[in-house]
Amino acid sequence: MVADSGAASGPKPSSSVKLVLLGEAAVGKSSLVMRFVNNDFQENKEPTIGAAFLTQKCNLPTRTIKFEIWDTAGQERFASLAPMYYRNAQAALVVYDITKAASLTKAQHWVAELQRQASPGIVIALVGNKSDLAASPNNSGSSSSGGSGGALSDASTAGDDGDAASSTAVGDGDDGDEDEEGEGGDARKVATKVAKAYADEEGLLFFETSAKTGLNVAEVFTAIANAIPETSLKGPRGVGGQTHLGGGRQEDAARVNLTGGRDAAGPKEGCAC
């Protein structure tokens, strides 16, 4: 009976983070999620209908974050879906395609809407995807730490533009780059500098990624995980120093489990008045 909640998952505290992906159609939102969750990529991915839900864990040195990812459809026809996904979301990934200037404009609209409507503490990352289509060496992902979280620790390289040092590809990232599309020239339409300047101004995390090669994909999620304020992961009463029964993680101290731990004795014994 004692401390049955959460204790089994080991010494590391773990918490869930609700994350929503927003951005114009075909910028690669679903591809980023697929790379992150399954380490996989599809050349011709079909557009998302409505939305999709996936989960993935992210292990940090001191804690485990379970991302609950809502991948929305960029082709959203009536702009009515996003509000129910970013409601109570702790993180948002706003994606544009570095080969389509208009997609950055759309991304900026999303950022503005999030700042106006979403939870005030939401961590927003601006992500320029399809960096594999840009001519090297400008295809590096550069990241910067912006406002909210502040402590971006290891994941952010705070790079100057064009600094190629941070390109730690993830997974099979070494087998895909510099081929067909990359060859002929540079398809890049959005300069890293421009997007980064905007991100800095708005206090957003910033990365250039490639769902195709895997470049920087895990880094985005790790940076978000690191930027989520500790207080918003703990149960809201954590600050008050109140001791809880069960000793598990704060989040679980209040949560009721609907599927497990059903008291076999049922209401007849003990509890039921």
């Binding site: 009721v256 059903r262 008291d263 209401p267 509890c271 039921a272 008045c273």
Partner: peptide
């Protein structure tokens, strides 16, 4: 009374986080 103890000792009812039934709607 019959609900008490179903999901844990000492309580028989729950509320959804983030604003009641509205959250279930969403």
């Amino acid at each position: 009374l019959r609900s008490i103890g179903m999901f844990g000792p000492g309580f028989g009812s729950v509320v959804p986080k983030w604003g009641g039934l509205s959250e279930i709607s969403q």
